[in-house]
Design a protein around this nucleic acid. Structure first.
Lengths: 161, 161
DNA sequence: ACCCATTTTTAGGCATACCTAAATATTACT
DNA sequence: AGTAATATTTAGGTATGCCTAAAAATGGGT
């Protein structure tokens, strides 16, 4: 199975598993609007590859391996969504694009994104130029950066080398 | 054909077309390290769908439609690479991840990325906190943001509302 | 405990994007 | 121009992730 397929399904099983013991083919099928028969096949393969414990007619639960993948994928998803939101992407689009990005970005890129989000979130304020970016994205108008601010940044940029 | 497949092949034809009249199945095959026979099939389908002019034994050229797709894809690719480089992702990884992202990001997300790159590039200096991010990515150590800078930003953030 | 509705699986099919082996076209050389 | 080497295509095959239709298992109501 493709990485994307494994991660997508395992993540969904993880979400649907909350509040119930086992996830049934129908749960996945209706969530994804695909045929239950297709989910049966997927479950069989996920079972073979050790991501779920699946038994005929009684649904599936995640194995430790599956849980690990699900949590990692979900974490990437959440961080990427937050990242896109910070940049000014609207919520729906951020969710959707994060859903694709979570499968393709390499670890070192994810690490960079994580640190980006971390820095911005731990700032006492939203960085000025991020606000500028959001305004630009929303209105299409780009304001000029105040010279005093450039100077202030410049001072720190050079002193830190 | 899948969007990704069309874009990837058309983009490659575009690159290989430079300096020669027609792109042959072998050119693509050796670039992608796949079997020439597979490229024949792809060319036939791209031809049917109007992205290339393909004729047996004589290779393919891009149609206007194909050129348009190739240029747009390439542009997205370049901007995404630049974006990731700005964040501190290393060159090789940036190229590779851009290559995947170029097919999945929605137009509004791409627009945001474009504006991000634009703002940072048109800054007289590299924004201070972007430098901080790069240092953090590289060294794993996160320096504290100088209070004066926070104050300066804060002033502009509030006055601009 | 039995029957009927619902859920789930099985079996067989399809498109995509790849493969190998064999056939055929092109080209380059003498 | 004929032939050998190379390039390209055809034919047939594979795995993936979906489908439909039909068979089989499950479970709730009386």
């Amino acid at each position: 199975m493709r990485k994307k397929t494994i991660e997508d399904y395992v993540e969904l099983v993880y979400d649907l598993q909350k509040g119930k013991k086992r996830v049934h083919t129908n749960d996945i099928a209706s969530a994804l609007k695909i045929n239950p028969a297709s989910v049966t096949e997927i479950f069989q393969k996920l079972n073979e590859e050790g991501y779920v414990n699946y038994e005929k007619y009684s649904g599936a639960t995640l194995t430790e391996k599956g849980k690990k993948v699900a949590k990692a994928t979900k974490k990437r998803h959440d961080i990427l969504t937050e990242f896109l939101l910070l940049l000014g992407v609207d919520k729906k689009t951020a969710e959707e694009d994060a859903c694709e990005m979570e499968h393709i970005l390499q670890p070192s890129t994810m690490d960079t994104v994580i640190k980006f989000v971390e820095i911005v979130k731990h700032c006492q304020i939203t960085p000025y130029w991020l606000e500028r970016l959001k305004r630009y994205v929303k209105t299409g108008k780009l304001s000029k950066c105040p010279p005093e601010l450039v100077d202030a940044c410049l001072k720190h940029a050079t002193t830190s080398k």
